[in-house]
Amino acid sequence: MLLTCPYCGLRDQSEFTYRGDANARRPSFADESIEAHAAYVFDRENPSGLHEEIWNHTSGCRNHIKVVRNVTTHEVVSCEPVGPFAKALKRGRAT
């Protein structure tokens, strides 16, 4: 499997680390409730078909990307940058 790092380009999956469901959103920093955190940490929709997930280009630029992947076929549909430089990368400006 190959993933497109928005910065480094198309690379082998072995350069990336899987970081899980992109829809697991941490509650706001002010929130200290057990319910909200338990839902964030433990509960997963775990869909078949399209799955949004976070990968880290660990052996490359170490940026995170949001990958949309069909987990039934392993087809990679899209790779989007996340993180501080996401906007710059989305505009096609590597830096």
């Binding site: 899980g20 839902a39 509960d43 997963r44 929709e45 775990n46 869909p47 078949s48």
Partner: peptide
Amino acid sequence: TSRVMKLAGVDRLPIES
């Protein structure tokens, strides 16, 4: 599990496949 439980209306479980 997640697929079948979703049919019962249980949308989220502490499971990933």
